[in-house]
Design a protein around this nucleic acid. Structure first.
Lengths: 168, 168
DNA sequence: GCAGAATACATCCATTTGGATCAATTGTCC
DNA sequence: GGACAATTGATCCAAATGGATGTATTCTGC
């Protein structure tokens, strides 16, 4: 695939990145690269600072945004395995950041609410994550960010994002 | 944050997704959601079909795109921990999909090349992944896809994507 | 050309992950 | 209303993960 193979050379990293984002899988490669690269920063940072995995603080964020939601709902917002969410919620409850309440109509599910401690933790985490978002989106203008967001939302709204015909 | 808390109700999943993509962290939430949701499909599929983690087949893809690259270079394309790449390459070498060759100028590094078996495996995997890409990007028009790609590339080219001032 | 820093990759090991399963409850169909 | 399927969340356990460290080699400053 590369003439330089014969010459025993390889393009430098920047060129390789450019070219892989020009390959058949360019859309997938490009967006995955962006998210993977950022995860190395954001996820590791909060893991170290607060000894909690991504899914824990993002669950807390979801619970604070929508007090009373169920674990099940978090899974829709952050598509991860069910037991991952279950454990994240257990961690938050165990540390007193989230409180569970019986859901009147359904004895299986529990409604989740942030505690004052949970809200305080979020107020500590959110400024850092917001600053990181600003840092990573700095290359885009305001208009470009809105375009990017609109396109992501369009992808998220697509019916085949979370299930597949081509991959059983 | 939500008046329905008093009423003991929660918005449905679709509305929650909309609203979290309208919050302060909307850009991060939106793009992460898209990638996470797709990973649940694509990664798991190839794990089952070919008993290999994402990083293995994407390393193979990189090696086929740029024959002769080093493990180090793969890490630039797919930002993951170093030992993750190391193991992925070891798996590919162990299964005979990749062959290592001494790099003349540097005895530490190894040049990586796909074997016929590796290329054959890729020809089996790529159609499925390409079809999946098509499936997930179906909501976007051709022009929108190019816009999305251009914005992702702009983000990837940003100097602060892979390192951070705000997150030590 | 030599000492110390840096790089490339492999490996160790405690922790995390996720598929599978379980228990409890609710929904559906007749 | 009773049997069977579906849902909600917890837990089990084999396997993967990633930070730290090790080994070998190359680069840098003097």
């Amino acid at each position: 695939m590369d003439d330089r193979q014969a010459a025993g050379e390889c393009p430098d990293a920047g060129q390789m990145l450019d070219r892989i984002m020009d390959s058949d899988l360019r859309y997938l490669m490009a967006v995955s690269h962006v998210v993977l690269a950022n995860n190395q920063i954001t996820d590791r940072f909060i893991e170290r600072r607060h000894a909690m995995p991504v899914q824990a603080w993002s669950s807390l964020y979801a619970i604070a945004c929508f007090p009373g939601l169920r674990a099940r709902d978090i899974q829709v917002l952050f598509p991860r395995p069910q037991n991952t969410i279950s454990r994240a919620v257990a961690l938050l409850v165990g540390r007193g950041h989230v409180r569970e309440e019986a859901l009147p109509g359904d004895a299986r599910a529990k409604r989740l609410f942030p505690t004052p401690s949970g809200l305080a933790l979020l107020e500590e985490i959110l400024p850092a994550v917001t600053a990181r978002q600003e840092e990573m989106f700095a290359p885009l203008s305001g208009a470009e960010r809105e375009t990017f967001l609109a396109l992501c939302r369009k992808l998220a709204a697509g019916p085949m994002l979370g299930r597949s015909r081509v991959m059983g």
